[in-house]
Simulated assay, not measured.
Amino acid sequence: MIKHILCATAMFAAATTAHAGDPFTAPVTAELLSGWQQADGTKVSAIRLTLEKGWKTYWRVPGDAGIPPQFDWSGSRNLQDVSIRWPAPKVFVQSGMRSVGYANEVTLPLMIDAKRPNRPVKINLQMDIGVCKDICVPQRLTLKGTVDPQSTTPTPAIAAALAERPYTAGEAGAATTTCALTPTTDGLSITATLTLPSTGASEHVVIEAGRSDVWMSEASSRRSGNTLTAQAEMVPTTPGALALNRSEMRFTVVGSNHTVDLRGCTPG
């Protein structure tokens, strides 16, 4: 069963729209955008979220003030795998708390692999997301569509969203990423040292442990020249010792000029 997967590409025969079924007028609508099939057989599509003025929704790691998005693809047919190519997010500060996400509108490109590549893929997606203005409210959206494996022409709106991805380490001129782990009463403390040029006057570092059963605190950071140091706490949400694979850790630096996605770290 494919459930709560965060990464992808897909292609739908026609765009469909779904509105959240809440007691008040939903501040967000979701739409499946038609896409194309790549030469390797991967199908490309997207989810477009359109929010009412002043509302925002969240990135895959929303911050302490946000609601993490969840995606349930289990009702789909002939779907082998799907991932979301998240565009670079923004950092919002409200009442002294930071959150990470998108305002007004965001297009989330999808990558879909079919169990039987030459057969249609029937998509039945249930999305649970948070949307915020003066208050934060959960929204449940259901989207359905059929993947069409015929078209090979890229869709401009999806191609534009793919181009909005964060910079890679090489593109940003990043060098080494090291991380020191120190045991604490509840889990581990991590100090990450990122060697990369400034991403702008304001920088927010998001650290992901590479495990879904680990809670990660918001990171504090400081910069000295081309060295950015970030510190955070991680606590396991399930019983047992906390063992981490450094190669699966992820560090996203959201700056006022651009965003950088760094994968893995070495002991430091």
Rank of each mutant, 00 (worst) to 15 (best):
H258T: 08
K115P: 03
T177H: 02
E52L: 13
S95N: 14
G170L: 01
T153G: 08
S189A: 15
E31T: 11
H258S: 12
G187Y: 00
T42M: 10
C132A: 15
K133R: 15
S76D: 07
I207K: 00
I190D: 01
T266M: 12
A39L: 09
A243R: 15
H258L: 06
T153V: 15
E218I: 03
V147I: 13
I2V: 15
Q94W: 07
T155M: 07
A192F: 04
K122A: 11
L51Y: 04
E31Y: 08
S95W: 08
P89G: 07
D113C: 09
S202E: 13
Q94C: 08
V100A: 06
T107F: 00
R77W: 10
T193V: 11
H204C: 05
A13S: 14
S217I: 09
M127C: 12
G187N: 06
V205L: 06
R77H: 14
D213N: 12
D186S: 14
A243V: 13
G63Q: 03
T185D: 12
F92W: 06
G187S: 05
I123T: 09
M216W: 08
A163C: 12
Y102H: 05
T229Q: 10
R263C: 09
M127F: 04
T9W: 08
T199C: 08
A8H: 12
R211N: 11
D40V: 12
A18W: 01
L181K: 06
I84P: 02
A219T: 09
M111G: 14
P236F: 08
Y58F: 13
V260P: 01
G130L: 04
W73F: 12
Q94K: 14
M234L: 15
G63R: 01
T184Q: 05
D213P: 05
G225D: 10
I207R: 02
G35F: 01
C132L: 07
R263K: 15
G54H: 09
N124L: 05
A175E: 15
N257W: 06
S83D: 14
V82R: 05
D22G: 13
G210N: 03
N104H: 15
G255L: 02
S45V: 03
C7N: 13
M11A: 12
P109C: 05
G240K: 03
A174M: 04
I190V: 15
C179V: 14
W55V: 06
T259K: 00
S217G: 15
P69I: 06
A15I: 05
R211Y: 07
L49N: 01
A18Y: 02
G63F: 05
G96W: 11
A20S: 09
G63A: 08
S256V: 04
P267N: 10
L262E: 00
S217E: 06
E208C: 09
F251A: 01
L49V: 02
P166A: 01
P267Q: 09
G255Q: 00
L181C: 10
T238R: 10
M1D: 13
F24A: 12
L108W: 00
I129K: 03
Q126G: 13
G225P: 04
S198V: 00
G101N: 03
N245V: 13
P239K: 07
L79D: 03
T227P: 06
V106Y: 03
L196F: 06
Q37F: 05
W73Q: 03
V235C: 04
K43Q: 11
L181D: 07
A46P: 04
N78V: 12
I129C: 01
V121N: 01
L51Q: 07
G187C: 07
A18L: 03
Q139P: 07
V254F: 01
P23I: 06
V206P: 00
R119S: 14
